[in-house]
Structure formats: C-alpha cells, structure tokens
C-alpha cells in the first residue's frame, strides 16, 4: 500500500512538537531563573548574617579603645570574614561632640594612620579609605564595592584624644560585600 505524505511517526505530527518544545523551554527557563533567584537570595542573607555577626563582636562592650579595636580586628573580624568567604571593612570613627553622618565616607577612619580601619580588602583606589567625604570617591567605591551591606552602630570612644579619660560619641561602620 502506498502511504502518501507519510514522513514518520514524529514527522507526521510536527505542528504539535512546537508547543511541547516551547513548554520544555519555559519549564527549564523557570527552573534556571528560580535557581539563580534562590542563590541570589541566599547570598544576600549570608552577607547580612555575616555583617550582623561582625557587628555583634564590634559592639559587645559598648566602648572601644584603638588597641582593643586592633586586637579584635586580628583575632575576630579577619578570621570570621575569611571563614565566611566575604570581604569586609569595620571602621571605628571618633566624633566626640556630634555624630556627622551626612555625606561621610564610610571607609574613612579619622584615627591617625587609618588605625580605626580593619579590612581584608585591597583597594585599587587608595582614595577609598583616605578621603573623609564622599565627594570624588563615590565612583571608586561603586566600582570596587558592589552590593555591600552597611550597618552603623554608636559606640563610646576616648575623646578628644585616644589617651583622654573622657568617653564621647563614636560610630562603628560594618561593611560586608561579596568577594
């Protein structure tokens, strides 16, 4: 018997293959999208948990001298961030009379020689941690620090100098971002 136009069991039903393939593509695309969204959410939660853990350590006492801060930096902050696989910067700032947050560079420590800065990041632009204000440095920060979590906390610091007996207003900035 002659079977005109018969091109096989699949070929004979080519039109119905298109919606099937489309459905498979949409399904796989959904799974891929879900996977990437899931990973992104997990990464964000991981960053924020790391920032919170560093902040707990930094604010534990309520007051910090620069020596205590540097000890914490070496013994707690750096090992924890290394274990968590994130980059971080913890910055101790001395304000004393008034806390000034407006347009301030969160990476800049006003302790001499950047003694109040603890980080495991090597910045390509040196202005990131040497410029007090955000003017002229915001682009560099945006280039090198992406999707950062920033937490600020008040802390008591020696005022007006490190060896002063008086304790005044200070701020700790905890900044965490992905490697």
């Amino acid at each position: 018997m002659k079977r005109n136009a018969f091109i096989g069991p699949l070929g004979d039903d080519i039109p119905s293959i298109f919606p099937i393939v489309l459905g498979v593509i949409i399904f796989i695309g959904t799974i891929l999208y879900a996977n990437s969204a899931y990973n992104a959410r997990n990464a964000d939660l991981h960053l924020r948990k790391t920032a919170l853990a560093l902040a707990y350590t930094a604010t534990e006492k309520g007051t910090l001298s620069i020596q205590e801060f540097q000890k914490l930096c070496e013994n707690s902050f750096k090992p924890y961030a290394a274990h968590a696989g994130t980059k971080f910067a913890v910055v101790l700032k001395r304000h004393c009379n008034k806390i000034d947050l407006f347009n301030q560079n969160p990476f800049y420590s006003n302790y001499s020689g950047n003694a109040g800065l603890c980080t495991n990041a090597v910045f390509k632009s040196t202005s990131i941690n040497s410029t007090p204000g955000m003017a002229g440095v915001s682009t560099a920060i945006a280039d090198e620090v992406k999707n950062a979590v920033v937490l600020n906390y008040p802390v008591a610091v020696n005022c007006p100098q490190e060896n002063s007996a008086t304790l005044g207003l200070g701020v700790i900035n905890v900044i965490v971002w992905q490697k």
Partner: peptide, 13 residues
C-alpha cells in the same frame, strides 16, 4: 548599643 552608650558616654561631651 544605644543602651550601653548611656552608661559610657560622658554627659559633658
């Protein structure tokens, strides 16, 4: 942290 600062920060500052 704020509550801790009450006990540490000197009023004159």
């Amino acid at each position: 942290s704020v509550m801790k600062s009450i006990y540490f920060i000197d009023a004159n500052t």
